Simulated assay, not measured.
Amino acid sequence: MSAPTTYKIAAIPADGVGAEVVAAGRTVLDAMAAASGGTFAFDWTEFPWSCEYYTRTGRMMAEDGLDVLRDFDAIYFGAVGWPSVPDHISLWGLRLKICQNFDQWANIRPVHFHPGITSPLRKADDADLDWVVVRENSEGEYAGLGGRNLSGRGEGNEVALQTALFTERGCERIIRFAFDLARERPRKKVSSVTKSNAQQFGMVLWDETFTRVARDYPDVETESVLVDAMAAKFVLKPEDLSVVVASNLNADILSDLGSALAGSLGLAASANLNPDRRFPSMFEPVHGSAPDIAGRGLANPAGAIGSAALMLDHFGLQAEAARLNAAIEATAAAGVLTPDVGGNAKTDEVTEAVLGVLSEWPA
């Protein structure tokens, strides 16, 4: 028997419930590896970078952290943020530092409606709703360009500039990524989202790039929608969605809306991808650190376990990823649910239920 493929994974639980859900995902992944018949294995290294690390060192991650992470096959991330550290420091010092320096320009956020979980959408009761938000993850509104000046003029006179960056290359690569993804889905459709009626430079460039790229995909249906209209469409006509591609800020907001419509942000998985594979990609739930429930065993691990499935898919283990997603669905359908989706199960009980489903199915 050939030696298993061993994937080197950097685990960064970070803050709050991040530690709990990363532990859950690692348990599930290790169990799948053990049951793979020697096909694959995981070699984990955990890093303590977090707001607590910042309190001790004045840094959100080690000074050579990026150099250390560069040699891993993937990064499995928990959540960042704690009341003792300003959010812009914790986010830019860890998560965004990794995303931007590793050019993880494609952020994938599936919006999936699980059986057994009540959605606030009435249409979810009798429509097959399932779409994915593709987020430009390297520039746009989160490029970090700008500054604060003129505070010397006195109180109330300071000026802050926040500049959104749109490049034709950045727009084209994420739009092509969305079209390629749409070709793999049952409904081949891409919805582009901007606010180009009011933001007449960067988002007009996005619109023009979308129109040009669409000509190379005549088999894919397209539409261009303003972000406010798309927010309404998420609620009023979600059955018309398949792949939604948008800028950093717009996709961030819309994907959270989608997860809330599916029942909870605790369900939301994501992948920060460097599709060129020059750097490791990073996989994380999007629910945040949730300080109010941290340490109480109440966090929903579904988002982190779903992110683990996205990591399996990234490694080319598509069948294993599909099995894991199906196990999450089966667990929800069986009513093993955390409080955020109307249940009373603990984090470890949901994890054990997923493991139980996987153990009943042939690998």
Rank of each mutant, 00 (worst) to 15 (best):
D43Y: 13
P339M: 04
S191T: 10
L312D: 04
L165S: 11
E136Q: 11
N137R: 04
Y142W: 14
F279E: 02
E158N: 05
Q100C: 00
E139M: 00
Q100F: 08
S255D: 10
G38V: 03
V204R: 15
H287A: 15
L358Q: 02
D313W: 03
E184H: 10
A178V: 00
W105Q: 09
L121V: 02
S255A: 06
N250T: 03
P362Y: 00
V244T: 03
V286W: 02
S192M: 13
D103M: 08
E168K: 14
I12Y: 01
E168G: 08
T39L: 13
T347Y: 07
C171I: 06
G25D: 02
L317A: 00
E223M: 13
T55Y: 10
A262G: 07
I293D: 04
E360Q: 14
G295K: 14
L29H: 12
R135M: 00
V80K: 13
G316N: 11
N149C: 12
G316L: 04
E352A: 15
N137V: 02
A31L: 01
D87Q: 13
V85C: 05
A322N: 06
G263S: 10
S84H: 12
F279T: 06
I89N: 03
T331M: 05
V80I: 15
F234D: 00
S191I: 08
D103W: 06
N274L: 12
F40H: 15
I175C: 09
G78T: 05
G295C: 13
A302C: 11
S270T: 06
G288L: 11
S138I: 02
T163D: 15
C171F: 06
F234K: 01
R278C: 04
P13G: 04
L337V: 00
N137W: 09
R122M: 02
L66W: 13
H314S: 06
P110Y: 13
D64G: 04
I117T: 06
D125L: 11
A334D: 07
